[in-house]
Design a protein around this nucleic acid. Sequence first.
DNA 1: ATCAATTGCGTTATGCTATAACGTGTGCGA
DNA 2: TCGCACACGTTATAGCATAACGCAATTGAT
Lengths: 132, 132
Amino acid sequence: MNAPPLTKNQALVFDVLEKAEGPLSAYTILDKLRDHGFRAPLQVYRALEKLLEYGVVHRLESINSFVACAHPGENCHSHGIVAFAICESCGQVMEFHDHEVDHRLMDWTRGKKFKAEKTTIEIRGLCEACAA
Amino acid sequence: MNAPPLTKNQALVFDVLEKAEGPLSAYTILDKLRDHGFRAPLQVYRALEKLLEYGVVHRLESINSFVACAHPGENCHSHGIVAFAICESCGQVMEFHDHEVDHRLMDWTRGKKFKAEKTTIEIRGLCEACAA
DNA sequence: ATCAATTGCGTTATGCTATAACGTGTGCGA
DNA sequence: TCGCACACGTTATAGCATAACGCAATTGAT
């Protein structure tokens, strides 16, 4: 699932996410792109759908937001399960991968014959700077 | 954080969740409780807030729904991180705990000096019956 | 070359999820 | 008895996401 060349809207949305300090909601992205002609949520959601598919953007389920993948250029889907630590104070997101966690979860799903499609791991709390 | 006696609304909401086959959205709960006098979303959300606090109900972030804890009577918060496998076909939810996963995530947060408050692990896919 | 299928795009409308803000009543300890 | 905390009810609003329609551009098989 490597990313094909992005369309205009996809590139605009991706650009906003990449330049952002932290995760953004779809409507925040929309507002940032009004000057570029965006007028409706669907324009954002449709672009996001593709960017998620290509693996260059992640969705943070617990805060209804989106963030650019921390591994530009690479195919993030191949790193196994992606985990996130989200600071509830400053909004910063750290993305990481842990193969041992993947392994444990896969063991569990295998044992239950559960066919996993998409796994979410999100840790909310305070980053080092904000916890001080 | 053991559960104090539930108020009327809390008991009603909890009862609906416990008798349900799978997770329910707040608005679905509301509809099921109209006969009991519920008229507004806040009545549900306020009850859910407490039930979540008491640990007798879990929120499934990835599907904006709520489910009764699978360990009635016990204090679920003491089991460590709760993980869920959610069947996208039949809606059934399996709740489980894996201390090794907890450890790995805690190791990571310790290393980053990240103060974890709430961790979400949700696996979406197909249960054994539905995958067949 | 042409037709059909696919994909992206724009727009309007709508539905679902969640909370703000205000007021009421009740119980309980100082 | 006063003040406080808490549950509750109601109205309104904010925030998140998609349905359904139509148009334009691209591609690719015949």
